[in-house]
């Protein structure tokens, strides 16, 4: 299996006729971990939702290929089957479907009919991954995210990632709402996946998570595009100094989308 590649070129995304992503370029390869940082309302979640194919977000121009294939042509489920994964900032709750049933459906969706994962094997895998994430087994039998605390939802997103073994995962604020122990556990989950066959895009506000998952590249997003890229040291400087120096450097007054430089 070849290493994954996600290539975004001059991407523009609108929601309800308001342009949010305004010409964004980014390439992520297998083995790489990228982090996107940026103030609130600069389009980070919009980017991740558009890549996953959220129906509300309209890609107005640009090109995205995933392993050479046109990602934007694919349905949401096809993107997932191609190996893309999005840990959402606000995961949905679905009543009446247990976490375990949901995960099994998701795993089987990727497999051929007649080649479904055996229940035994599924349970073994699930137990192992839940142990790894220090999740109580009761979560397997609870309804999907229903009544989960903020941190529990995040852990559950990582559990899904580990069970589904995507080639490229986008983690949108996976660290928000996590206590320090949970943060370590989640980082452990991501690090466990690290390999040349796995790429990752981490959206975060804090250096904290990046202490545990060292990124290869750090990007800063403002006004719906990437305005600065660098190595791990960039995240450290942002943590220490905030965004003002970048705004000054680039002559940006208001970093949120809808404001032009």
């Amino acid at each position: 299996m070849s290493a994954p590649n996600l290539k975004i070129e001059d991407l523009r995304v609108s929601i309800e006729d308001k342009e949010i992503i305004k010409g964004l370029d980014l390439e992520i390869n297998g083995g790489e971990i990228h982090a996107i940082m940026g103030p609130n309302g600069t389009g980070k979640s919009t980017l991740s939702a558009a890549l996953m194919g959220h129906p509300k977000y309209e890609v107005t121009s640009g090109k995205v290929t995933f392993n050479g294939e046109d990602l934007l042509e694919m349905e949401v489920d096809e993107r997932a089957k191609a190996g893309l994964f999005l840990a959402m900032q606000y995961p949905s709750e679905v009543s009446g479907i247990t976490n375990a049933d949901f995960l099994r459906s998701a795993i089987n969706a990727k497999r051929e009919e007649g080649d479904e994962i055996s229940l035994m094997k599924f349970i073994r895998e699930l137990d192992k991954k839940m142990d790894h994430l220090e999740m109580d087994n009761a979560f397997a039998h609870r309804y999907l995210n229903e009544g989960f605390s903020g941190g529990e939802k995040k852990r559950n997103e990582i559990l899904q990632m580990m069970m589904l073994e995507p080639k490229l995962a986008i983690l949108d604020e996976i660290d928000s709402g996590l206590d320090i122990d949970a943060l370590k556990v989640v980082a452990k989950g991501v690090n466990e996946m690290r390999s040349p066959d796995f790429g990752c895009l981490i959206i975060t506000h804090y250096q904290r998570l990046l202490n545990y998952i060292t990124p290869d590249k750090v990007h800063v997003m403002m006004q719906g595009r990437i305005v600065k890229s660098g190595g791990p040291e960039l995240a450290q400087r942002l943590e220490a100094e905030g965004y003002d120096w970048i705004k000054e450097e680039l002559g940006i007054k208001d970093e949120t989308v809808g404001q032009e430089a």
Binding site: A80, M88, P91, V94, A106, L164
Partner: peptide
């Protein structure tokens, strides 16, 4: 969107819901 983003088809996602 959430269910489909895990690879579950539209029909199957509706069925689950």
């Amino acid at each position: 969107f959430y269910l489909m983003s895990r690879g579950i088809s539209k029909a199957e996602a509706e069925r689950l819901i």
